[in-house]
Computed example of a mutant assay.
Amino acid sequence: MGGVIGIVLVFAMVFGGYTLAGGKMDIILHALPYELMIIFGAAIGAFLIGNPGDVAKHTLKDVGKVFKGPKWSSKDVRDLLCLLFELLRVARQAPVELEEHIEDPQSSAIFSRYPKIQADAAAVDLICDTMRSASMNYDDPHQVEEVIEKQLESKLHHSLHSSHAMQTMADGLPALGIVAAVLGVVKTMASIDKPPEILGQMIGGALVGTFLGVFLAYGFVGPFAAKLKQIAEAEHQFYTLIREVLVANLHKHAVDICVEVGRQNAPRDWRPSFAELEEALSQTRAGVTP
Rank of each mutant, 00 (worst) to 15 (best):
P70M: 07
A94Q: 06
P195H: 02
G200D: 02
L32K: 10
M202E: 03
Q106T: 13
V185G: 02
K71C: 07
L80N: 02
K155E: 10
G287E: 06
E276R: 12
T130Q: 05
C258V: 07
F274H: 15
A232D: 08
Q143Y: 08
R263G: 06
E103P: 00
V63D: 04
E197T: 01
D104M: 03
L241W: 06
E149P: 06
L160Y: 00
S73F: 09
Q118F: 10
K229F: 08
K68N: 12
R268T: 04
A180T: 02
L250K: 07
D79G: 02
N265M: 09
P223Q: 04
H164K: 15
Q151M: 11
T19S: 12
E149R: 14
K252T: 15
D62M: 08
V8C: 11
D171Y: 10
H157S: 14
K61L: 14
Y34S: 11
L29G: 08
M131T: 00
A165W: 02
S273Y: 06
A123C: 08
L246K: 00
G69L: 01
P223G: 03
D171H: 14
A122L: 12
K116L: 10
M1V: 14
A56D: 08
S135R: 12
D76F: 01
Y138K: 03
E235P: 04
I49T: 11
Y18M: 13
V255E: 06
S282R: 15
E153L: 09
R92I: 03
D76V: 07
N265H: 12
I38A: 05
S163A: 08
K150D: 15
V208G: 00
F40S: 09
R92H: 05
Q230W: 10
G177K: 02
V288D: 09
A234P: 04
G204A: 05
P267D: 02
S107Y: 14
M25N: 07
I148C: 10
L98G: 02
K68Q: 12
A42F: 07
G184C: 05
G50S: 05
L199A: 01
E276P: 03
D26G: 01
G45E: 03
M1Y: 15
Q93E: 14
F220A: 06
Y218Q: 08
L241N: 10
V186Q: 08
S273M: 05
A275L: 14
R263M: 04
A190T: 12
A226C: 07
A181F: 05
D139F: 08
L212E: 00
L160D: 01
A190Q: 13
A266K: 05
K75D: 14
A134W: 14
A217C: 01
I49L: 15
H164Y: 15
A109W: 11
L199T: 00
A232G: 04
G287F: 11
Q118C: 11
I49E: 10
A232C: 01
V261D: 11
R263P: 04
K24F: 01
H101I: 11
A42T: 09
G204P: 02
F40L: 12
L126E: 13
A225W: 00
E197F: 01
N265V: 04
M1A: 15
G219K: 00
H101C: 12
P33L: 00
L277M: 09
F274E: 15
P70E: 01
K229R: 13
